[in-house]
Every structure is written in C-alpha cells, then in structure tokens.
Design a protein around this nucleic acid. Structure first.
Lengths: 343, 343
DNA sequence: AAATATAATGATGGGTTTTGAGGTGTCCTG
DNA sequence: CAGGACACCTCAAAACCCATCATTATATTT
C-alpha cells in the first residue's frame, strides 16, 4: 500500500512560517513578497531575512527582492541660472523616470549658491534620511565640518564637479581639473597662432575648488609654453550671465590686445553675448558645459571650444560611488566639442 | 532483500528524486518537465534547480527549459598590427573575464585584413552557432551578400567602427565619421594658424567606409574653410606601420611645404617615427586610436591630437545592439586627446 | 502636550492560482 | 507479460493574491 508517502516531503515553508519567524502578520509578508508599498524598510529586511533563513526564497529571488533595497540618494546643486547645472538637474529627473523601481530613489535640491552656510545646513538636514548625498562642494570650513559629521554618522558622501579636499571618506566624481585647465591653456595658446596679447580668465568663484584648480592649470601652462601671452587676472562672475556680460564688456574695453578668454565656470552665455554684440569673433573663447547656449555660440563661431563632462556619466558615477564601496575613482573623461563634432 | 533500493545503486535519478529534492509532489515535477502551465515561477525554478543538481537533465533540455541561456556573441576584427584593434581585442578579453556567467559569451576572431572574401567566409562560418556577430565591415558586394544571408537566417549583426551601408537589419556602432573628418580638418586648419601649404591624408583602405567617410568630411571642410591649404591626395597605408613609415618619408621629401597630416586609419606609429627621425615636429599630425604609441607621440609633441572612440563603450554598445531590439543608435562620442588631457 | 495627520501594520475575506494525490494509459525492458 | 517510469488528466484542498478596513505607531502641527 501507500509506501511512498512515508516521507512527509520536508514541507516547504509557507508564508505563514515566514510571518511567524519575522514576527509579523501574513499581510505584511504578503506586502513584502509582492513589492507592495507601505512597509517600513526595517520590517522589510526582517521579513526578507526570515524568508532567506527558512529557504523560502531562492537566491535569485532574494537578490531581486532584498539584495539591494533602493537607496535614498540626494543631490545638492547650487541654485541659480547656470545652464549646465540646470541640465544636470534635468538629466537627474530623466534618470529617475526611466529607472524602474530597482534603481535608487534620487532627489535633487538646489541650494543657495556660493553660500557655505546653506550648503552645510542642507547636508545636515538631508543626512537624517538619505543614504547618500552627492553635492557640489564649496571649499569652506563650515562645509568641511558638516561633511565630516555627516560621514561619521554613517551617510555616504561624494562630491561632484567640485571637490572638497582633505575630508577622509568622501569620494569625488569629476574631472581632473588641473589637467582641464592646462588643456584649455594649450588650446587657446595653439589656436592663437603665436599672436602676442592678453588672455583673460573668468570664473564663478574661487571657493569652488574646481575653478581654482582649473585656473592653476591654465596659468601653469601659459607660463610654460606661451610666454607671448600675458594673463589678465581672474574675475569672479558668480556663474551669472548678466555679471559675466558686464565683466566681458569691461574687458573688451580695457584690454585692446585681448586674444582669448577662458571661462572656468558656468553661464558662458553672458560672455558670448558681449562678444557677439561687440563683433569680436576674433577673440578665442573656451568655456565649460555643453548647453543650448554654448552649442549655439560654437556653431556661430563666437565660441571656439566647449569643455564638458557628460552629465549622465557624472550621475552614474556618483550613484556608483554612493552605492557600493568606493572603488578606483579615476577622474571622468573631458569631452571637447568644436563646431564640427557637436552631438 | 532490500527491495526499496536503500543501497544507492547509482541508478539514474527519477522524477521522484527530483520531487523530493525540490520539496514538491510528483505532479508538479511533471508539470514543470512537460511545460504545462499552472506552476508558479518560483516553484518552477526550484524544480529545475533540483533537477540540475541531480543531473536529471541533459544540457539541451536544461537550456530549453531554463529560459534565457547566455548569448553567444562573436566579434570579428581585422588581423594585423594595428594597435587600436589590438587594444580592442584586449578590452574584449578583459570584459569576458570580468563578466560573470550571466553575461553573454564573447569570442573574438581576427580575420585577414582587407580581404572581403575572408570576412564573408568568417561571417557565414560563425553564423552557424553564434547568436550575434559584431564585425568591422569591409564595403564589398561579397560581404554585403554574406551579411544579408546571415541576417535572413536569424543571426543578429552589428558593424563596429566601419559601417557596411545599405544592408537592412544591421545596426552600426561607431562614430559619425563624416563629422570626425570635418573635426580633424577644422583642427588642423586652426592649428596651422593661417599658414599656406599642403595637407596630406593617409588611410588604411578606401574599402573601409569609415575611412572614406572621414576623408570626405575632411575634404569638405578644407575646401569650405581653409582655401590656403591644398590637399595632397590620400595614400593607402593598409594600417601597417612600416608602410605608413615609407609613405611619410616620401611625403616629407616630395612636399616641401607640408603643413599637416591626417591619418584616417590606424597604425600611426609609422608616421610618427618618420616625423621624429626627420625632426619635423612642426608638421601638425592628427591620428586615430588612443594606444601606447600615440600616447607617447602626443606627449613628446610629434602628434598634436588623438581622435579616439572608447573601446569599452564600443563593446558595450555592440553587445547591447546584439542583445535587445536595436533602439535609438546615436553615434558614439568622439574623444579628443591633446598632450594635457591624456587619461 | 494635545490634536491631528501620515504611515505602518494587523485582521479578514472573497476569488484565483498552485499544488498534491490519485487515476489511467503508453511505452519500454527484462 | 509484469512492472517501472512517466505523460496526461481531474479534482479538491491548500496556499496565495489582493483589496479593504481597523488599529497602532510615528511624525507634524498647534
């Protein structure tokens, strides 16, 4: 007779067993297993752990459900009209939309620009609930302190575009800005074809380490390779188009032998406007950030080259840096656009 | 005695064993093995896993039942000494190593270069077992026919670096080569600083559409913007360093007012060697492919710019093209390297 | 601190799917 | 031809999905 049923086939665990083990109700187990919302992350993990221990889930499913809970990631960018940062914000949003529920939850806040206080405060405020924060750093003790605190409290940080320097445990995602500055210098020097004259630097703020590093690189190569060009000291335009416009008009008036301009920061629109209005297409102009206005400027010849860092790459690498353990963080690739290779 | 087979008589495993191992009834095993519906995916996986562990299934069956087997992808590259292609091969291997068993199986074969026959044959040969083939195309009717055949037979194809043109159903992963040629022309024109003289073109072969497209772009912009420069017709160096070396020596001798060289193809090493030996660092030289030799040439000033397409990106996009349905295939980004922004 | 909103969990039940147990018939093998 | 392995089927029980609502934490406001 029924010999075969003697092994009560090591009963597979049921959701009820998982529920018991996790100390929750069936309803909650169901919510977790079916990815319904309304479960606190802690309980979610408990349930998943219980399920794993009971062998209720195969490894595959476990990875799909539990492995990586979606991280909460915050991105802090300077407010203001800087078109590149606007674009960055847009790409962030695009990424959020396109990524399924698997990807991390991205949130983006704009912080009063050039304000170390505001940035420090934002860091502290968001550290409470975010797993990781990517931020455009302002080099200032207040920010450094806030960052160190936040890192100590267990929130991961990466700086993007502009670095913070000398705070351990913070990775950086961005260009090698000294090399970038040197490349800009090289390009302007070479394109000027041996002419003697002045080269002007425009920046957003020296408080952005990215800006001062680019400046340093630019100066070093000018001195090294192009003695016929003299540097007309750096002006801070605070990444504001109107301010950059005024600066440029003044420049064009005061410096008759102006050969080139390198805008270390953003909002090149103001500069191109001045150049266009004064009909000074002969001035070599290199700036940062591939945006509609710089595109147009390059196409019409007002601008000679755009230096860019791919926003999507920037975002990917930042997320990567905030997710896993910070691996080899080689600098991003500098993209150089002329009128002929615009994407 | 012992009727019930308590001695593990190394019998072939039975469905009952699978059932026991999976903690499931015979009925369910039956459903899974015979692809009947009404089995939850989770249980399906359990059963399959148990069956696999017991060696109950042959590989064939397992693949058929288990769902998505990893894709078999073949990459065909031209043989020869071209350093960029060598690098590409290396990156392929690196990718193969790094990717887990989940990723597609990549295999890379080097085909006699510039031989349409050999390429066509390789396409047909590999189509028999590969799911997708990525290949560096030679524009030739023989290749086109083979490609069309292979596509019709259900193997997916993408061309990399050099396109095949006008064969439906084949995606292309590579640069916008006309724009690349124009950019090279722009750069050489601008860097020459208004000097008059000759500009020479060197290519691997006009049978590579990539090469002739770059040539066309280069010519168009020279004519358009730099009338003071005359083009010293294209030479085919077959991407061979020795041949390029000889060509360049001849060039330097025959063309006293040589201002620049654009190497549309690979193996720039031969050209830099000639320039170095003749001490002609004044000649502006732009070439393709970021490799150790071009790196060195740029650093020492023999070469002015390297145009590159990131091999990893190329591979990723090719695999992507062979895996899913071909989506928006915008061209790859052109990377431009000067002495100061080498990675 | 009380009041109030919001989110998280528990409880429950109806409808659906999945599963186990068993029956039948076929094919193959000793 | 007996017997094992298995394909294919049915049916009822069990497990599960899913929506709803009550209840309890947790946060926010007043």
């Amino acid at each position: 007779m029924g010999m075969d049923g003697d092994q009560p086939v090591a009963d597979r665990p049921q959701q009820a067993d998982v529920a018991a083990r996790a100390g929750v109700s069936l309803a909650t187990v169901d919510r977790v297993l079916n990815r319904r919302k309304g479960v606190k992350e802690r309980t979610r993990q408990r349930v998943l752990e219980a399920a794993r221990e009971l062998g209720f889930l195969s490894e595959r499913e476990e990875a799909a459900l539990g492995g990586e809970r979606p991280l909460n990631i915050v991105v802090l960018l300077p407010a203001g009209s800087n078109p590149y940062l606007r674009l960055l914000g847009e790409r962030l949003r695009a990424r959020l939309d396109s990524a399924g529920p698997a990807g991390p939850v991205l949130r983006c806040f704009f912080i009063e620009s050039f304000s170390a206080q505001a940035l420090a405060e934002a860091l502290r405020r968001n550290a409470a609930w975010a797993d990781g924060i990517a931020f455009f750093a302002i080099e200032h003790p207040v920010v450094r302190e806030a960052a160190a605190e936040v890192v100590a409290a267990g929130t991961r940080l990466v700086t993007i575009v502009s670095d913070l320097g000398s705070v351990p445990g913070i990775a950086h995602v961005g260009l090698d800005n000294r090399a970038v500055g040197r490349t800009a210098g090289l390009l302007i020097g070479r394109l000027s074809g041996g002419r003697a004259g002045a080269v002007a630097l425009v920046a957003g703020s020296r408080h952005y380490r990215a800006h001062s590093e680019r400046e340093a690189g630019f100066l070093s190569i000018q001195e090294e390779l192009f003695p016929q060009l003299r540097i007309h000291g750096m002006r801070e335009g605070h990444d504001d188009a109107a301010e950059n416009y005024r600066h440029t008009l003044a420049l064009l008036e005061q410096v008759p032998d102006l050969v080139g301009i390198y805008n270390v920061g953003g909002s090149s629109g103001g500069i191109t406007r001045a150049l266009r209005e004064q009909d000074r297409q002969d001035v070599i102009f290199v700036g940062h950030g591939l945006t509609p206005d710089t595109r147009r400027a390059v196409l019409e010849g007002t601008m000679d080259a755009i230096f860019d860092q791919d926003p999507d790459m920037l975002i990917s690498r930042a997320i990567e840096g905030l997710s896993g353990p910070a691996p080899v963080q080689r600098p991003l690739k500098l993209d150089i656009y002329f009128s002929e290779n615009l994407p």
